[in-house]
Design a binder for these strands. Structure first.
Lengths: 347, 347
DNA sequence: TTGTAGGCGTTATCAC
DNA sequence: GTGATAACGCCTACAA
């Protein structure tokens, strides 16, 4: 029933050479060590027999699994599929495959998955999770396991990382609102223990200052999570303060969607009563009513670049650690509008 | 720099036993073959040394990689992340990991990925791609490689498969529209060469007949892809026909979104002028204006069930082939409304 | 240029 | 119950 697998021996036998010779002929690295015509014979035999080298055996010998581990919070978060695709595409091009682990933001699960992947002898790890403890990272470093960070970075920049420039993105968002004439701009910040939340908050403050506006604490509120519910809650709280804002810069698109919901609830109109700008440009966010103005995040490239960095480390390139920032892009849609002069601001 | 990896030999040495004994003690399957106290000694030694079995070596010996291949069209299609999560979660629980391959619907890529995964000695495959040629499936069967189909099935039911009951789902959609008083119901069908497109079309026809309505060819149009653009195109065409329909059952949510766009364009209102029902209940589809009435598809469970079926085959269960249908669910939102009596229907 | 031999870490199959 | 031995399929000094 089951086909007998074709091994190197079979190929060698058919080509009338020793397995070692066959191995050399089949391996691009060492093909030049073997005479042209014998190499050809081997190749022909391999072709004829439908030979595929057994990667397991090869891994055992070479201690290379051609496998990398990827830890993300949750694949069903729409942010991640394009990133993962980018990763996989770039890795596949180099003959690597990715093992995806979803941590759900749980530190314990994170640890466990990390260990399991190490146990599976991954050649490297890409970490997009926020909480992975530094001891674990140190352990990886000690074991010589290449690690690349995604959407976060080591405080001391000791590890390669790829992320969008969150500060700059948020500055772009605020600058856009200012250009539309808004003066009292609120910020629904993401969780401040996440680097994305923190850096976007910093970008917000920097932009406010740069434009000579006042950073009114009443205009700033931090969400406990990047969720629609939290966006709803924070916007409600903002409205209750009656602080006269005419625009909101949300920490991400989910918070902006929650903001939309709160406006609906309060009978307010976006953008007539309040301009809203998001962050991420999630799929379908352009189909909302109104279509959300947001900061586009080059998801796919974050993935490809992270893969690239990791492949470089795996290949043993020992150059300086690269910390890569990808430029975000402002996408203006229907949720932002010029501030009506003399507008009283949100009641 | 790099830690020397702890091997079975080390554990055996520390416990004062032969490696084979250590192996037996460490393996749950064979632990009973070894005396309690020696087993304990081995376990203790392993613990102390921080021993992790080398899965590569184990695979070489046991010819089990504890790895399965998963072929999907495109991870960034919002349909798939929950399915993949379901798969991975169920597989992880059994100590397996998934290798994801994106085919982009390209038959050649599909073939290539299939081969690569076979070359990596996956223990089984889950296929969610439509075009995988039957010869390849036959080859897998011949090689004794377990295969499970997702969202499609073998014509002869010769392979285990998991899918949502597309026919039933579409019948539910039509029945809902009929209950709302609609009589002239259009169908924007998905591509008829995809089993999803075909089966939903069949469900549509069956429901129309069951309700004693006429299946007017003017009311039916087939999209070339499950895309917003095609939904737009098809709805435009439908509107031009002036066939007096008051409701549309779209082949999936993307087509429904395109339908929304066409209505906007034509200055028509949903649901006042036309009721629209989608299929899939994609993320954020409930945030559209109006929120889309649709058929919910138990994505996550499709994944877990497919994983379950595959694990059963891998475990060597040779029972009858299981073909599993998961029940869809109607989710009524704002895009469908009662047909206004005496309504002329779409101009 | 090609063959020889040994081992990567584990487990299956024998003996004892 | 435990130890010895031999693979699993491949790669790579080293020798010829």
């Amino acid at each position: 029933m089951t086909d007998p697998p074709v091994t190197l021996r079979d190929v060698a036998a058919r080509a009338g050479v020793h397995p070692a010779t066959a191995s050399r002929a089949l391996n691009p690295e060492t093909r030049l060590l073997v005479r042209e015509d014998t190499a050809l014979r081997v190749l022909e035999a391999a072709e004829h027999l439908g030979y595929h080298p057994n990667p397991v055996a090869r891994s055992l010998r070479t201690r290379r699994s051609h496998t990398v581990g990827v830890l993300i919070p949750d694949l069903t978060n729409p942010l991640f599929p394009p990133i993962v695709r980018g990763l996989e595409d770039r890795l596949a091009a180099a003959g690597y495959v990715a093992l995806i682990g979803n941590t759900d933001g749980d530190g314990e699960r994170e640890r466990l998955l990390f260990e399991q992947m190490r146990a599976r002898h991954v050649d490297g790890m890409v970490l997009a999770t926020a909480h992975l403890s530094d001891p674990l990272l140190a352990e990886a470093a000690r074991a010589g396991l290449p690690v690349v960070l995604m959407n976060r970075m080591a405080q001391d920049h000791s590890l390669p990382s790829v992320s969008v420039d969150n500060e700059r993105g948020m500055r772009m968002a605020v600058t856009h609102l200012v250009a539309e004439g808004h003066q009292r701009i609120a910020h629904i910040a993401g969780p401040q223990e996440l680097s994305t939340g923190l850096n976007r908050y910093r970008g917000f403050m920097a932009a406010i200052e740069a434009h000579g506006l006042v950073a009114d604490p009443d205009l700033i509120i931090a969400a406990k999570a990047f969720s629609i519910e939290e966006g709803l809650r924070c916007t409600r709280a903002l409205l209750e303060r009656r602080s006269g804002c005419t625009a909101v810069a949300a920490g991400n698109d989910m918070l902006a969607v929650g903001c939309f919901a709160a406006l609906d609830e309060a009978g307010l109109d976006c953008p007539a009563d309040l301009s809203v700008v998001g962050f991420n440009d999630m799929p379908f966010i352009d189909r909302l009513r109104p279509p959300l103005t947001t900061i586009r995040f080059p998801h796919y490239q974050v993935g490809t670049e992270a893969a690239q960095l990791l492949l470089e480390r795996i290949a043993g390139q020992d150059g300086p650690v690269k910390v890569l920032y990808l430029a975000p892009e402002l996408v203006v849609r229907g949720s932002t509008a010029p501030c009506r002069p003399g507008e009283p601001g949100l009641a």
